[in-house]
Design a protein around this nucleic acid. Structure first.
Lengths: 364, 364
DNA sequence: TCTCTCTATGACAACGTTGTCATGTGACAT
DNA sequence: ATGTCACATGACAACGTTGTCATAGAGAGA
């Protein structure tokens, strides 16, 4: 709608190759070059490229031919500089790790939504490092992205104020922002976690361990609160030995889980609050051969969770919907910058597969 | 080295918020605004931002203060337009699907390498659609990316000639280019596939099925050739019933595998040539409860492959190295555009975990 | 024939930055 | 006092595009 990807000037022939192979290329053809070749003015070329009205069919044909001959390709950057809306037709996506399956699905959803608007996506990973989050925001805004989708890892996003003031739409995903009012698309972490723990409690478990990833991440806090809320509501005292956060990697989670399992008072069930953590826990359970004895519920689904033995019961979020809604919100806000700040909650659901339905041992 | 991400002008205070909340924002501060406020010329501001020599310490202080007050952020797009090297400090990555684990690891590697050069990464998915590959290339080159990393899905990349002529470094990953000379970083698909099939042959299997994904993908062809080569070398005739390609999804592979398993002459071993296909095959084997009877070797490793029962024997590629080398090659070529075209082969290795070591039934 | 309108086109400035060149200033040697 | 020079700074053009305005020419109506 805003502009159409112009067709027809990408099928360059190979005859130009020699010039390129020689090294010192003359460079890319500009509208000026096309204009000269077509014997028209620069502005007329611009009109043709942008399919503006008021150009005769004959002129369009001449200009189009010249564009093809020079394999002209319009410079979107230069155009964006001059155009008054200043749109770069790009957005920035900042997640914890583009190679994390959960984040990658958000990425894909955002890409799909962006592509529908002829918008390209810059993607980058914070690695859960606070300083990196900030420097990525700077890197993207100085490239004048039209909007940002951020999975914030820091404790404070107030540094985004100038950007919001400047009018850049910023949408948080997976975790609510802190210290700043911005749109946000999240699962209801706390209630979903509560549901998972209630499920274990209902089966009779009381020694339920909580394993989480990094404590500075807001969603981990919410999941922990859900765990504590469920335990408290059931009148079960939490053994501090059974709470372990800051498992920064799969291996760390593996170690933590092994230690718990081997302790004097092991848990009878484990609630694992993140997908990488779950993978470590699964390995620990198999390694000690207690995967059919200790119950497990994982926050976040993961590929092949249903193929394990027992299949892993999970709280499944809906990352595709989260990413899609976030991107759509960016475009809504570009249309109408004065939209009030909104938090969108995407439902998560408990998927019972077996590991979460293991009962506690009879002697407990 | 080329420019330093300027520090100090991101900690905007919240006092400006009102102006932003009012709606019609005046817009972003430019160097001109900073210059006016600091009482210096535009060019001096530019010098300070770029840390060029020849500015007095006092002036630097004044200008820096003005930048902070206006939360100035330099416009990289405008700069790139004027600068003679025309670098946008961005590259484009085009893969089959950013949410495919293999592709996502390539993405992460490319991002890491790019970040080290202060370069941002556009990422997008072809979905294995040929036309989409072309339109993504157009979308990225018209944004003047400094280089492209492409996982080509089409049968012909000659449409890239004009771009190569224009001097854009283009590196193929995972699959060699067709119809055009471009750098390429790949696994030796054919030999790796051959190794996998030889492994099954050595255990005594002869009825070895081949399941692949889309036939227009070059790597699938190579893997199939490796399969055929190994079978032929062993003097084993291939039953056409045991070869199935164009399984476009996990579900398609599931259906194909179920059909083969249930046929009059089922295979005793399966070579699955792609990660999504493998997931379908695994489901089929479990569904028919033959996962401990029919051997399986998968091309591409996947998370938790070692937790299944039996654990899945795979040909493991090294996607991180592939992505890293591709990105590094982009930067090498930017430094020296006249580099000869090169194909880099990244080793893949057979990881024996159990599923590939199941022997054929005794009566075969 | 002389306006008047409409269509097609072009001249020019501008976007925010960087590259080139000129110039003002003071220190220092002559 | 004068010339030389390095240093700090600024004026101006340019990058490739789009927005604004002007204008030449064709056709219509008086």
């Amino acid at each position: 709608m805003r502009y159409s990807m112009h067709m027809g000037f990408h099928d360059g022939d190979a005859s130009q190759r020699e010039a390129g192979a020689r090294g010192a290329v003359k460079g890319r053809a500009t509208m000026r070059d096309v204009a000269k070749r077509a014997g028209v003015s620069l502005k007329t070329v611009s009109r043709v490229v942008n399919e503006e009205p008021g150009v005769s069919a004959a002129t369009i044909a001449i200009v189009t031919a010249a564009m093809d001959e020079l394999s002209f390709q319009r410079d979107l950057l230069a155009g964006s500089l001059r155009r008054q809306d200043r749109r770069s037709d790009s957005i920035g996506l900042i997640v914890a790790g583009v190679d994390n399956p959960f984040d990658a699905i958000i990425h894909r959803a955002a890409e799909d939504a962006a592509a529908a608007n002829h918008v390209a996506v810059f993607a980058a990973s914070t690695n859960e490092e606070i300083e990196r989050e900030r420097s990525l925001v700077r890197a993207f805004t100085s490239r004048r992205v039209d909007g940002l989708i951020i999975m914030p890892c820091g404790r404070d996003q107030s540094y985004l104020e100038p950007e919001l003031t400047a009018g850049t739409p910023i949408i948080m995903v997976d975790r609510p922002p802190v210290g700043v009012a911005a749109d946000c698309v999240i699962s209801d972490h706390q209630n979903a976690a509560k549901l998972a723990v209630e499920h274990l409690l209902a089966a009779g478990h009381t020694r339920i361990a909580f394993l989480g990833d990094l404590s500075h991440i807001a969603s981990l806090q919410a999941r922990k609160d859900g765990y504590l809320e469920a335990m408290q509501a059931a009148g079960v005292t939490v053994d501090p030995e059974l709470m372990a956060i800051d498992n920064h990697s799969e291996n760390a989670a593996l170690g933590t889980a092994l230690r718990m399992i081997s302790s004097a008072h092991p848990p009878t069930a484990i609630f694992s609050a993140q997908n990488r953590v779950t993978q470590g826990v699964v390995r620990a359970l198999y390694e000690r051969n207690v995967h059919k004895k200790i119950a497990l519920v994982s926050f976040d689904d993961f590929p092949l969770a249903d193929m394990l033995n027992p299949a892993v019961t999970v709280v499944a979020q809906d990352p595709y919907t989260i990413g899609r809604l976030a991107a759509e919100r960016v475009f809504e806000r570009l249309e109408n910058p004065k939209l009030p700040v909104k938090t969108i909650t995407v439902p998560a659901r408990l998927v019972r597969r077996g590991s979460g339905e293991i009962p506690p041992p009879a002697d407990e």
